[in-house]
């Protein structure tokens, strides 16, 4: 869907490239997270997709066609864009903000109105409460939601998101991430997501591109593979020494084969949506060797022992 072919960007007046000979592909409907330390060129990489920055060399194909085939403004109207600083128009109401690209595309008023309400509901804001407010009347988290709603408004197949949840407190961020994943299950956009936070990358990414200083690709793979087989020292140290735990956090209890429900009622109980990391944490915390897994209806679905957990983490490692 999006393909980088030998893309290099050297800023004027700079000797070393910010992005160096980048080639990778983002499949349709997946979330690709660009992650790396500051100065690794991740934002530059993202901004070349909608031509906010033009590459010095190489080309970027979208749906098989170079992104230079149509004008930059036309291209950008087909690509959702959400940034950390949000950049809502302070002088426009929430409805006008969300309706920006639809009105650029000259949708009729009624269609824009309906779409705006639909988008506000999608991001969990009651349209009746919010559509006529101004951005300054909203909290940071609410503004972030409006930013995402605005990026989605014209139903673009591709979304670019530059740390869209970066400017809110950790609890709000986690909630926004969860909601974002839930929304993505329905809309299946091709998303390029920039973050410096490896945990966010692991949580959100179908694929992760780890970039290192100088703008080269250190590894491009699924979160599981990056955690299991880091391609280099750099990747290993970037994902951190707790990568076994991180890997456990990727798997939910409902996804594994559980043992029979054993033992007495005194064992800790966990919902099936909890992760293997949660299970380990529970075992360490309670001192139990085994946890019971509870289904949504409250039935005991099975159990997981510490040995089994060790085996699972070993298999992955």
């Amino acid at each position: 869907m999006i393909e980088f072919r030998g893309v290099t960007k050297t800023y004027p007046g700079s000797e070393r490239p910010a992005v160096d000979d980048l080639s990778f592909e983002v499949p349709e409907g997946e979330i690709c997270v660009l992650v790396g330390p500051s100065g690794c060129g991740k934002t530059t990489t993202m901004r070349m997709i909608n031509r906010l920055i033009e590459p010095t060399e190489g080309e970027i194909l979208i749906g098989g066609e170079p992104n230079t085939r149509i004008s930059a403004t036309e291209l950008r109207r087909k690509i959702g864009y959400a940034i950390q600083q949000i950049g809502l128009f302070p002088h426009r109401t929430i409805a006008e903000n969300v309706g920006t690209v639809p009105s650029l595309l000259e949708w009729d008023k009624e269609r824009i109105r309906r779409r705006v309400d639909e988008m506000l509901e999608l991001v969990g804001l009651n349209p009746d409460d919010f559509r006529n407010r101004y951005p300054a009347e909203l909290s940071g988290g609410q503004q972030q939601r409006v930013g995402v709603a605005r990026a989605l408004a014209a139903d673009p197949p591709i979304m670019l998101m530059d740390e869209p949840f970066g400017a809110v407190d950790p609890i709000t961020r986690e909630r926004l991430q969860d909601e974002f994943l839930k929304i993505q299950q329905d809309i299946r956009k091709t998303i390029v997501f920039v973050t410096h936070d490896i945990d966010e990358a692991i949580k959100l990414g179908d694929r992760i591109a780890i970039l290192k200083q100088g703008g080269t690709l250190a590894q491009y793979d699924s979160p599981e593979n990056i955690l299991t087989n880091p391609a280099s020292e750099f990747v290993a140290s970037f994902v951190g020494t707790d990568r076994v735990l991180k890997r456990l956090s990727l798997t939910r209890l409902e996804e594994i084969e559980l043992g029979p429900p054993q033992g007495n009622g005194g064992l800790p109980r966990l919902p099936e949506q909890a992760s293997l990391k949660d299970a380990l944490s529970e075992m360490i915390g309670s001192g139990a060797e085994r946890v019971l897994v509870i289904s949504g209806e409250g039935r005991v679905r099975g159990s997981l022992s510490l040995d089994e957990l060790r085996r699972l983490s070993g298999r992955a490692g």
């Binding site: 909608n50 930059a72 036309e74 950008r76 600083q85 920006t100 690209v101």
Partner: peptide, 15 residues
């Protein structure tokens, strides 16, 4: 005018 507002406007395809 906040620079991020202009960046968002460009990114959304305003001329």
């Amino acid at each position: 005018v906040p620079p991020e507002t202009i960046d968002a406007a460009r990114g959304m395809g305003l001329t």
